[in-house]
Design a protein around this nucleic acid. Structure first.
Length: 656
DNA sequence: CTAGGGTTAG
């Protein structure tokens, strides 16, 4: 076939093939000189066989070699073939991808000479080109000077505005399209919905929704998915559910969007349920779906659910891309299996910044700040990965966990020079406070104008708790109340400090102040996974079916502990003040969950309990002793970290 | 033979 052989021949004209008998074009400069003079157009005979050339241009672009496409376009001219409306969009795209505006401008002149500007493909390519090199507004004038009769160029322009974070203009473009009388299509509506989402404007979003209904496009799965996402971004729970229920055809994207919406809003269980409902509904979850549901397992420390999903991914042959593996690492680390997390990490063939970040944070959560720091230093040995702000945050967190002050200061200086956020200052304050350097930490906060920051003050207060510095602790708690008088936790903290100082009168006053203001502290709660169900306990909870047996077990344990010399101690990390007094010493939710674990699970397994608040000193001491008495490993996860109790001691070495 | 859209991890 003649066409075919010319394709093969022209393919040989590449810099990689120096032995080719065909001429080779050594540099772009020569090309520019010749085309700049438009000589080819004066000398070439009119040939119309463009098909093979266009296919060649396309294949170079698809292969990620736009510079070869530019060279091939040049060969095409030399071979006497006149470019057509199929060649120029490809050549324009190639020049845009090689980031050489000059080539693009040359091609623009070809467009004009060949009178191709009325072709909408050519116009789109020119718009993309000019948008990249001289701003979206130049693309806009191109569009409005040629008035094409299809919605695609409008959609492209709207997307270009969205890329510049200008959703207002994007929406304006869409309305001009709607007003022009050209028929709307799904992609145009989807782009408009995205603009509304970016603006977080439900009002505009509903307008788009109505417009979609008028054009009978609201049942289109693409349009519906984009509207769904728009309502998610606007935080409109009712609209999300209403739309989702009404959708006649739901695909994996629809389900993923709604799962993600629940998980982001903290409805982790609901997210898991939806994932199962999706499978039951016959829609196969893809890599996006599992990446959306795994964080729910991570946040609930639902290790078994997470492992089940890991198995599901393998069985269903879901693509194990970077995002999925990152989500798995995070899930394993956050649900207590740091070994599984590092197994996944080690087996990854390609890692991105997130992979390193979640792994470092995982080590930090498990008291291995040293491993986290070592891992961070390893990133530099991996070409192509540059640590970002979040990676530095993880490294600083690791330094705080293991009190590695010097290295932490080095990291902080590095990120401070690049681009620092308040978060990094708070983490630096955490490092200093946990190391007991109270003079340094206050000077640091003053230097960085962070003395009024709630999280920074809480970090200092944590240090005070660890080092029993009640004087500064009291100041911090008082300042917290002053800055945030509506947060009940702050009153609890101050009241507990007064109590720890032996000042019961003041402790009572603070509690009463809190009650008078109608503030209620968060309820403590602990849970444990058993037989695929989550068993949750509140403080002094007696609602569990096996309650009697649980309390009996706790009583037995307390007696054993007293024999071994256990004494309860003063603590200023208590929480739920009113309930505390009724149920101490062993009614705390984590104790109930641990006791339930002891009586329900096999003796060789780890007891894994999760708590929504920090564990108090008494329970921490008790858990240590229980691990020895009952010869069981106990993992206790709180919002900040893991405690691993083995044979009478804890992985945190009593610093938490 | 060509252009535009919706979902993911810290």
């Amino acid at each position: 076939m003649e066409v075919h052989s010319s394709f093969i021949q022209s393919r040989q004209v590449t810099p990689e093939n120096p032995n080719s008998k065909l001429p080779i074009f050594p540099s772009h400069t020569q090309f520019f000189k010749q085309t700049a003079a438009h000589q080819p157009f004066d000398i070439i005979p009119l040939k119309t066989n463009t098909f093979a050339w266009n296919a060649l241009l396309q294949s170079h672009i698809n292969a990620g070699h736009p510079h070869l496409a530019v060279l091939a376009y040049r060969d095409m001219l030399v071979a006497g073939v006149l470019p057509d409306r199929h060649s120029l969009p490809r050549a324009l795209a190639a020049s845009r991808l090689t980031s050489v505006f000059f080539t693009g401008k040359q091609l623009h002149s070809h467009v004009l000479k060949l009178r191709l500007l009325r072709d909408s493909y050519v116009l789109s390519a020119l718009m993309e080109l000019y948008s990249q090199f001289s701003g979206v507004d130049s693309a806009s004038s191109l569009l409005f000077h040629s008035n094409p009769q299809n919605p695609i160029a409008y959609t492209i322009l709207a997307r270009l505005y969205l890329m510049e974070n200008n959703p207002d203009s994007a929406l304006h473009v869409f309305y001009q399209l709607a007003a022009s009388g050209v028929k709307l299509d799904p992609m145009a509506v989807a782009t408009a919905a995205k603009a509304c989402g970016q603006m977080k404007s439900t009002r505009d979003g509903k307008k788009i929704h109505d417009l979609a209904k008028e054009s009978k496009l609201d049942c289109d799965v693409l349009v519906a998915n984009s509207l769904l996402k728009m309502y998610v971004e606007c935080g409109r729970t009712e609209e999300i559910l209403a739309l989702f229920d009404l959708m006649p055809h739901k695909d994996a994207v629809s389900w993923t969007t709604i799962i993600n919406s629940n998980v982001q809003n903290g409805s982790f269980n609901e997210g898991l349920k939806l994932f199962r409902a999706m499978v039951v509904d016959g829609i196969k979850p893809d890599e996006f779906s599992v990446s959306a549901v795994l964080p729910a397992c991570a946040r609930m420390a639902a290790r078994k659910h997470g492992m089940e999903i890991h198995g599901f991914i393998i069985r269903q042959n879901i693509e194990m891309n970077c995002a999925v593996q990152n989500a798995l690492i995070d899930m394993y680390a956050k649900s207590g299996s740091i070994n599984n997390a590092s197994k996944v990490f080690d087996r990854m063939t390609e890692r991105d910044t997130v992979s390193w970040t979640v792994m470092i944070l995982g080590y930090s959560l498990h008291d291995h700040g040293d491993l986290g720091v070592a891992l961070f230093l390893e990133i530099e040995n991996n070409a192509g990965t540059e640590p970002d702000g979040a990676a530095y945050s993880a490294a600083l967190h690791a330094c705080g966990t293991s009190c590695i002050v010097d290295q932490g200061e080095k990291f902080f200086k590095l990120i401070w020079l690049k681009h620092s956020e308040p978060e990094h200052c708070i983490l630096m304050a955490r490092i200093l406070a946990r190391a007991g350097r109270f003079v340094n930490v206050r000077a640091f906060l003053k230097e960085h104008y962070m003395e009024q920051d709630l999280d920074a003050l809480r970090a200092v207060l944590d240090g005070c708790r660890i080092h029993s510095n009640r004087r500064i602790g009291r100041q911090m708690a008082e300042q917290l109340i002053e800055l945030n008088p509506l947060n009940a936790e702050n009153y609890v903290l101050l009241s507990n400090i007064h109590a720890a100082n032996g000042n019961c009168r003041k402790a009572k006053e603070v509690r009463e102040m809190m009650v008078d203001m109608g503030l209620k502290p968060k309820k403590a709660c602990s849970w444990i996974e058993f037989r695929c169900k989550i068993h949750a306990f509140g403080t002094g909870d007696v609602s569990h079916p096996r309650s009697e047996r649980i309390y009996w077990e706790l009583k037995r344990l307390m007696e054993r502990m007293k024999e071994e010399g256990y004494v309860s101690m003063e603590d200023f990390s208590l929480h739920d003040v009113e309930e505390e007094r009724e149920c101490t010493p062993f009614g705390h939710s984590e104790m109930l969950a641990i006791a339930f674990g002891l009586i329900s699970t096999q003796s060789n397994t780890v007891i894994r309990v999760t708590k929504n608040m920090r564990v108090c000193r008494n329970c921490h001491e008790s858990a240590k002793m229980i691990s020895r008495i009952s010869e069981r490993e106990i993992m206790l996860r709180d919002p900040d970290r893991f405690h691993r109790f083995v044979d009478g001691s804890c992985s945190c070495q009593d610093i938490w």
